[in-house]
Write a protein that binds this DNA or RNA. Structure first.
Lengths: 136, 136
DNA sequence: TGATTATCCTATTAAATCTATAGGGTAATA
DNA sequence: TATTACCCTATAGATTTAATAGGATAATCA
């Protein structure tokens, strides 16, 4: 299941990407337009800022804005920041690899074998999509 | 993240599939061999039985056994029973479709657009794998 | 300079889900 | 009829997710 955090984060990025000019947009407006709890969105946007996707401006006329062109923003990166590891089990994760403590040998593990394929196909989709690709 | 329920279920199915004969295997033995909490495994096997994957026999010499050949057991079916919907959001689910209450139009929704691709690629992997395919 | 605006930050709570355990019931076997 | 092993419900503990509260900080503008 996709977390609300990721869902809201993607919606916020999309919303910012469809703005005509590059003026900052207030959290309140994004929250209202996308039906998101403002406070929750606040923390999500902060995460996106800290990870280099967004810039912000305080005070009157302030808000958030994209730091890069939508076509330069890869879904692989966005998903890793918002949702965490792309792999469904740590033992097939590229960036967050961990050995399963209960599994004697992952090379003979059927779960590993299946989830490796899922990781690859999922990664292929994310690598093939930028923020620009999922807009209308 | 893959739930332990699914992980254990897949391991149990694999274990049963690699048995030489088709004699029933006790829960206790599967649990021991695969490092799974016996009581937890008990409920998982029950689920697999209720959904037509396993048969069981009570009393001495009893246990669980596969009802079908490994190559007849599709990962699509196993995953739906153990893990639930394959789609990451209900609005792109084939078998568990639900409209997002916060989303005005899913056809212009970027989350929908991305998750539709994920669903398709994930489904393709599961459809392409039977229990026999993930064994060693 | 001071009022206003809006982001920044930490802590906490509420809800949901997942994982595991407890304890006994039921059916089959020998 | 004793033993074995699955069957079933309820519940507790742990973890994660989602949301809220309350204020601190920085920028703007009159």
């Amino acid at each position: 299941m996709l977390s609300k955090k990721t869902k809201y984060g993607l919606k916020a990025l999309s919303f910012l990407a469809t703005q005509k000019d590059k003026d900052p947009v207030q959290i309140a407006e994004i929250a209202k337009q996308e039906n998101i709890s403002q406070k929750f969105l606040e923390s999500i946007l902060l995460t996106l800022k800290r990870n280099g996707f967004l810039g912000s401006k305080k005070g009157k006329g302030g808000g958030y804005y994209l730091l890069k062109e939508p076509k330069e923003i890869l879904m692989t990166d966005v998903m890793r920041v918002l949702e965490g590891p792309i792999a469904m089990v740590p033992c097939v994760s590229l960036n967050f690899y961990e050995k399963c403590e209960d599994c004697p040998n992952e090379h003979t593990c059927s779960v590993n074998k299946l989830m490796l394929q899922i990781r690859d196909s999922t990664l292929q989709v994310y690598r093939n999509n930028t923020l620009a690709d999922i807009l209308n």
